[in-house]
Design a protein around this nucleic acid. Structure first.
Lengths: 169, 169
DNA sequence: CGAGAATAGTTACAAATGAAACCAATCGCA
DNA sequence: TGCGATTGGTTTCATTTGTAACTATTCTCG
C-alpha cells in the first residue's frame, strides 16, 4: 500500500477545495447513527429477534397505548410500508393483536399481546442502559450540550431540490 | 382517529417506565441522519445520478488522490462490498479509471477521469453549501458545541453483544 | 342519495444492502 | 523454493427498503 506518483489523474485541485469527508456533517451523522443504532439493534435482534422498525412500533404502543398503523407512522418517522411490515411481523410472532376499529373499518387498532408487553418490558431497560452508557462516556459539559445540539439540528430547515434548482450561470 | 378506551391491551405500565422514543438518542440520531443525508443525497442523485456510496468514493479520491478500494473502505466506514459496487458503477459511468497496480496485481488504483473530476468539482461546493445552510440555522453557542458533541459521541465506546450477554438473575 | 376524492393499509416489483462464499495474487516462513 | 495463510476484490444469495400501484372504506358535497 505504497503511494505512487500519479500518471495524470485529472486532479481538480484548483477549482474544488477538496472536501474533508471526516469533517462533513452529514457523513458524521450517518456513520454515528449507523454505529450506535447498529450496535443496539444487534443487541435486541439477537435476544428477541426484533428489528429496528419493530422495536419502534413497540415503543410507540408502550408509550401511547393502542394505536393505528398510521399513528405509528406519524410518530416514528417511518413510511407506511415499513410500518405495515413491522406490524405484520409482530403480529405473526404473536406480539401484537389487531382488533377492528368499530368506527372505521379500514383501521386496525394495535395492542400488545401478553408476550408483546413482556418483550417491551425487557427491551426498554436494555435500551435505556445502553443509552446511559453512551452518555456516561461524555463529560458533563458535552453531555449537557447534546440535547440542545440535537434539538437545533432537528429544527434546521433543509434544502429541497427546487431550492437549489438553478442559481448558477 | 378518535382515542377509544382499551379493552385490555396488556399494559406493561408498572414494570417498564415507558420510554419516550422522541428523546431516545439512537432514534434521534437515526432520524436526523436520514433527514439530512437524505436531503443532500436526493440533491445530487437528481443532478448527477450519484448515490451516497459513490459520492463518498469521489470525496476520498478528491481529497487523497488515486487510492485502492481497500483504502476507500477504511476511510469511509463502508464495507468492501458496498465500496466495490460503488466503484463499479462509477467506472461504468466513465467517472473513474482503474489502472493496474504494478507492485500488486490484486489491487487496482482508482483515479478520476476528466468527467469524474468535473462532477467532483461541482458536487463539493453544493455539499458545502447545504452544510453551511444547516449550520447557519444554529445559534453560535450551539454551533460551536456541535463539533465537540459529535467528536465525543464518535469516541464513545459501544456495548457489544457479550458486554451485556448476561448480568441478570 | 351518490359519484368522485381522499384515506387506511397491503401488495408487487425493483433497487440497495450485508453475510458468506469465492477467485486470484501475495506473503510468511519452514 | 513452495505450500498454507492472508489479503484485495468480486459474485451469489437472502433480506431490507422504497416507489408505485392496488383494494377497501370513508368522506365530501352537488
Amino acid at each position: 500500500m505504497k503511494p505512487i506518483a500519479s500518471p495524470d489523474p485529472h486532479l481538480p485541485e484548483s477549482c474544488a477545495p477538496s472536501l474533508d469527508l471526516e469533517r462533513f456533517l452529514p457523513y458524521r451523522l450517518s456513520v454515528l447513527s449507523e454505529r450506535i443504532s447498529g450496535a443496539i439493534a444487534r443487541l435486541y435482534q439477537e435476544r428477541f429477534d426484533l428489528t429496528i422498525p419493530e422495536w419502534r412500533v413497540l415503543a410507540i404502543i408502550g408509550r401511547f397505548g393502542p394505536v393505528t398503523a398510521t399513528e405509528v407512522g406519524q410518530r416514528t418517522a417511518m413510511d407506511k410500508v415499513r410500518v405495515s411490515r413491522a406490524i405484520a411481523r409482530l403480529v405473526e410472532h404473536g406480539r401484537l393483536a389487531q382488533s377492528e376499529d368499530a368506527t372505521d373499518r379500514r383501521r386496525k387498532r394495535l395492542a400488545f399481546t401478553r408476550a408483546g408487553a413482556a418483550i417491551y418490558a425487557e427491551v426498554v431497560p436494555l435500551a435505556r442502559a445502553v443509552e446511559a452508557d453512551v452518555l456516561a462516556s461524555l463529560d458533563p459539559a458535552t453531555r449537557s450540550a447534546l440535547d440542545a445540539v440535537l434539538t437545533a439540528l432537528e429544527a434546521a430547515p433543509l434544502p429541497t431540490a427546487q431550492d437549489r434548482a438553478d442559481h448558477s450561470p
